[in-house]
């Protein structure tokens, strides 16, 4: 995974485009993406996948708005700092990734439901999501945790916001990004850098504990 040449990728992404990606590839993503984290995943799962609650308020409207963007698109695990300008428009101030593993119970079903081509986050995800990456197909894009201002600069505009009642960090922000820097760490071919690093570091831990 060394010395890879950074490639540019525009959304939406085709299946062929996804199959072309491998663990370790650095990518600059451009296009319209949607943020969603803990509250959004639970809301989507309970209302539209597991259906343990009925849609209410603007639920259906928001879901339909998300569908067209997420079909072939990506979801970003992010709770940004957003500032409201005098003209009423929003501006992203700081927008690094949040830990993705918390969405592991929901992610695979949400990927299948929307035909998501990827999620952006940090820390990687587990076996269920990796299996969905293979099946859909899709990939996991890793952004640099804490590189919040740098990533916010790639956000060219905030197109809309839904579910602001979840709170600004948990809301669904529809944004246009140009050259958002990420690295593929889980691909559609069944490889996960995170599973590999976890296994290797487990072997070393056992050695260090015995010494």
């Amino acid at each position: 995974m060394n010395d890879q040449i950074t490639r540019r990728l525009s959304l939406p992404i085709s299946n062929d485009g996804i199959l072309d990606l491998h663990v370790g590839d650095p990518i600059l993503l451009s296009g319209v993406i949607i943020t969603g984290r803990d509250a959004v995943h639970k809301w989507l799962f309970d209302t539209f996948i597991n259906k343990t609650r009925l849609p209410e308020g603007d639920d259906l409207k928001v879901y339909n708005a998300m569908k067209s963007i997420l079909d072939g698109g990506v979801l970003y695990h992010c709770g940004p700092v957003v500032s409201r300008l005098d003209n009423g428009e929003y501006q992203f101030i700081a927008a690094g990734p949040t830990t993705s593993m918390r969405e592991e119970p929901y992610q695979a079903e949400i990927m299948r439901n929307f035909n998501l081509k990827g999620v952006i986050g940090k820390g990687g995800m587990g076996a269920k999501t990796l299996a969905a990456c293979h099946e859909v197909p899709a990939v996991y894009f890793h952004a640099v945790g804490g590189a919040a201002a740098l990533i916010a600069e790639t956000v060219k505009s905030v197109l809309s916001v839904h579910k602001l009642e979840f709170g600004a960090p948990e809301a669904i922000w529809v944004i246009e990004v140009i050259d958002f820097p990420v690295v593929v760490t889980m691909d559609a071919h069944g490889f996960s850098l995170h599973a590999e690093v976890r296994a290797r570091s487990r072997d070393m831990l056992e050695k260090l504990i015995k010494s």
Binding site: V81, A94, G96, V144, A147, A148, A149, E153
Partner: peptide, 26 residues
Amino acid sequence: IAKGALETICKNIELTRKNTVPICQD
């Protein structure tokens, strides 16, 4: 990519100091 991540982190540190914005959104 480990080195790349650390370089990105350092760029971000410089940027937030210059622009007076949070280092991390959290």
